[in-house]
Design a protein around this nucleic acid. Sequence first.
DNA 1: TGTACATCAGTGAACGCGCGTTCACTGATGTAC
DNA 2: TGTACATCAGTGAACGCGCGTTCACTGATGTAC
Lengths: 232, 232
Amino acid sequence: MLILLFFFRRASRLNTALKLNQRYQQKLRTRQALVQAALDLMGEDKSLGELSLREVAGEAGIVPAAFYRHFQNMEELGLALVDDLGGKLRTILREARKKGAYKTALQASMGLFFEYVRNNRLLFRFICRERTGGNKRIRQAIRNEMAFIAGELASDMRLPSSIPFSEIQFLSEMIVTNAFHMAAEFLDSDLKDTANAKRLQWKTVKQLRLIFKGGLQRKKKRIRTTKSPLQS
Amino acid sequence: MLILLFFFRRASRLNTALKLNQRYQQKLRTRQALVQAALDLMGEDKSLGELSLREVAGEAGIVPAAFYRHFQNMEELGLALVDDLGGKLRTILREARKKGAYKTALQASMGLFFEYVRNNRLLFRFICRERTGGNKRIRQAIRNEMAFIAGELASDMRLPSSIPFSEIQFLSEMIVTNAFHMAAEFLDSDLKDTANAKRLQWKTVKQLRLIFKGGLQRKKKRIRTTKSPLQS
DNA sequence: TGTACATCAGTGAACGCGCGTTCACTGATGTAC
DNA sequence: TGTACATCAGTGAACGCGCGTTCACTGATGTAC
């Protein structure tokens, strides 16, 4: 009993160091509520720059002034959003990899990808919107996240070893860019129009297949055609 | 003299029909000032949704209430912007075509394209930003403009006749998408970092070359490789 | 242990400000005869 | 022609509102001893 009490007191003393105390937990929860509130309020159409501090605080259930206990301004909250969602995105893709998505057919991988996009609609809308949308720091942060994802994809693809890594990185970037572009198109289309969804998914598969073909072929031999003047 | 007077009176009577009267001209000028003011005020970082009616009116040199003589709200002004700039964009690309850009090497074409992007920085920033940025109607309008451009490109490319038009359209879309994406990256990079500009331009050329290769090859024969499981 | 003190997330009121929108108006331009 | 009237782009004042930010505060949680 004495030992137990001693243990609790010890634990209590370690609170600060371990950051396990009640106050800290509550702060984290509120912070998360702010981030989620921002994501919800942006919804389909609103950009981060159009959100007001007051509405975010209100949605999160705190008074406007309390916002400053968590972020200096909305830009800081935006960067936190990118960070949070970047992490989530990478988890999603890592999970997909575990399921062996990259090892199965391209078409199946894209099926999984579109399913994730559908299930994390607001997340992907945010990323697609702010990637070119507003603030420069946010754009840069998103660019970094996407570069990271492309990097992971590059390491993960097992392409013929004859292809240099820089080339694989180049292909990964194109794949990520085009996949996200198609995800944006998909999210903009009517949710219930499954025919259109299928069409967009198929188009994506076709695009990526083309990228692989163009990319892999380039390392085998250079084709020359006199018919088309379009290849420099 | 009498005849001249008669002519003037006659012309005056036709004013309404011909819409050449002074008042109409002035209105057009003010409208254009509003559109230009919006473009200038958005600059590098601000989205259309972040602009206030008051600041646009102020920059254009009219009182806020006068804004309503031209547009019902900021969204309408945005659509006018897309329309105006869409027209300008098509003119630019048509001009490039006249210069024979598509008939020369891909690399030279892209050199021209990037020059245009540089010279119409605000225009391209606006298009790239709002393409995924804010309001759904604006996004749709921009998507239409880009589809139109892709269509023009598709008609203009003289690829081997063995390739069906739908396939050419598919390639055009990919080209436009990727070119605009790279334009956005280019506009986000340091203006004075010419080395980086060159790098991005070269990367774009590489991307488009890959698309052509992948696209043209696909119609010749299907390659099968057992080395990579990535092509479905 | 328990008491006295420190910390700090969240409060609530207040501020000055720019916002979108309305309204009756002005006066230059256009029209009818 | 010129006069009398119509049109309408732009004015200027006013409105109620939500904004970001500040401030002294409260009271639950944490710490020292």
